[in-house]
Design a protein around this nucleic acid. Structure first.
Length: 452
DNA sequence: TTTTGAGTTGTTCGA
DNA sequence: GTCGAACAACTCAAA
């Protein structure tokens, strides 16, 4: 049998993996993961922990044959293909701007030695598939979602009962950093399965009502699993259909999966919008820069703004590498509209720390908040961090969980610690801005930028 | 080509 | 406390 490489990237699973099945058809399968030291070193500990855990599981699942090599894929993959005499290198397609470039470089470096075979994508519907009748891409979510639902998706692929694994030397698997007991999402395909089953059995029907509550465990927590491909969205959609469940919760959850596909589709058509404004209208916007702005940014990043819900969320991000979606909106709005900083700065920070950090969803989410994206939020929509906290963390449990200085304050009063007692609790910072004032400033800046 | 309806996630103010 | 209006037009999608 010839040797076929299966190069795992963001499909760290054996179940429902069409690219792996294609490799298996082609020969004995050499399972490979390329660890780019530059990316690894830039990752926060929670992300390292998650990835290392996934790789350890994959090593087990491949009978200890997973080959890890460090370096640039364009160097490592062709060298390995030559080393083992592989004719084909199988991958799940990567439609992001960097993935496309990387794969093109690998393909070129492989030359005539081996063929790079792309099978499938990490999305329910591959980017570029859903278009309007005239063939152009959608710019508005709702019509995209109607077309997406009408299109449907493939059935999940079977998990291979057995694979004949090929052999090659491996470097040591990366070690998971010690997170000091912080509770984080469990990595790996099996954990994804367990977590998903629990959500589907018990929580999906209440999802529409409960999903905005950061104090409760009401979301599926599939984001990191979807990002690293320990589960595929097609599997989730098939499970939902198979569950026989319906109703608002199911609809809303399905819509969230559609958002992921939508933003990937937008980025596929407009790769430059990973960094640049989707909508040029606000190009002339002015931002705060300089020493004060840098200090404000540091306070935001460290969770020391003096606004409890913002601080709780930013500290959760640092500790766990994850933040509830509602909290992402609140903290993003705070950076953009209270601190008047460009969304790109916040997006970059989120990408460094989020375990689920997905370029399309993250950066277009930020563009939505900033008003520069598809379906952008109206510029006058400025989140009030106190109101949002009281509304979505009604008992204050979320704040107290992540901000120890405020644990002495009971109930929802914790969202306004400045109204409790004579002084703020020891160690908790004063508010770094006056929200009411900064709201006015933001509206003013937006009006000016739009007037140009 | 023209027209029409619609568009994730909010806040504030005044009645 | 609750409710509706104002915030601002504009672009997109589809008939």
């Amino acid at each position: 049998m010839p040797t076929a490489i299966h190069w795992f990237r963001r499909d760290l699973r054996l179940g429902d993996n069409p690219a792996l099945l294609a490799a298996r058809e082609a020969g004995d399968v050499l399972p490979v993961f390329v660890l780019d030291p530059a990316i690894w070193e830039k990752s926060g500990d929670p992300r390292k922990h998650f990835l290392a855990g996934c790789l350890a599981e994959l090593h087990e699942a491949t009978d200890g044959r997973l080959v890890v090599r460090r370096g640039r894929p364009a160097d490592v993959v062709p060298a390995l293909a030559r080393e083992v005499g592989a004719d084909t290198v199988h991958v799940a397609g990567d439609t992001g701007p960097y993935g496309r470039q990387r794969d093109a470089a690998v393909e070129k470096a492989l030359g005539d030695d081996a063929e790079l075979v792309r099978t499938g994508s990490p999305y329910a519907v591959a980017p570029g598939t859903i278009t309007k009748d005239d063939g152009t891409p959608f710019k508005v979510f709702t019509p995209f979602s109607r077309r997406w639902r009408d299109h449907g998706w493939h059935e999940p692929a079977a998990r291979p009962r057995s694979v004949s694994w090929a052999r090659a030397d491996s470097e040591d698997l990366p070690e998971a950093p010690d997170l000091g007991g912080t509770e984080v999402l469990e990595p790996g395909e099996a954990a994804a399965r367990t977590r998903w089953k629990a959500f589907l059995d018990d929580r999906i029907e209440g999802y529409d009502d409960e999903r905005n509550r950061p104090d409760l465990d009401t979301t599926s927590r599939m984001s990191a699993h979807l990002h690293f491909g320990t589960v595929h969205p097609r599997t989730l959609l098939a499970d939902i259909a198979g569950s026989g469940k319906s109703g608002k919760g199911v609809e809303t959850y399905t819509t969230e999966l559609c958002w992921r596909d939508f933003y990937a589709d937008v980025l596929w058509h407009r790769p430059e919008t990973a960094r640049e404004y989707f909508n040029d209208e606000l190009r002339g916007m002015t931002y705060s820069t300089g020493k004060q702005a840098d200090e404000d940014f540091e306070a935001w990043a460290a969770g020391r703004t003096g606004f409890p819900v913002v601080d709780a969320a930013m500290r959760q991000l640092l500790a766990e590498g994850w933040m509830h979606n509602r909290m992402r909106m609140i903290t993003a709005s705070f950076l953009v509209k209270d601190l008047h900083q460009e969304w790109t700065r916040g997006a970059r920070y989120f990408m460094q720390h989020l375990v689920d950090g997905d370029l399309a969803s993250n950066n277009h989410g930020w563009q939505w908040v900033a008003g520069t994206g598809t379906d952008a939020a109206p510029y006058f929509r400025v989140f009030n961090p106190v109101t949002q906290g009281q509304k979505f963390d009604p008992d204050g449990d979320y704040v107290r969980r992540h901000v120890p200085e405020l644990r002495g304050i009971e109930g929802k009063k914790v969202h306004e610690p400045w109204t409790v007692g004579d002084a703020l609790p020891e160690g908790y910072p004063e508010r770094i801005v006056d929200h009411k004032h900064e709201r006015e400033v933001a509206l003013d800046r937006y009006a000016k930028a739009r007037g140009r």
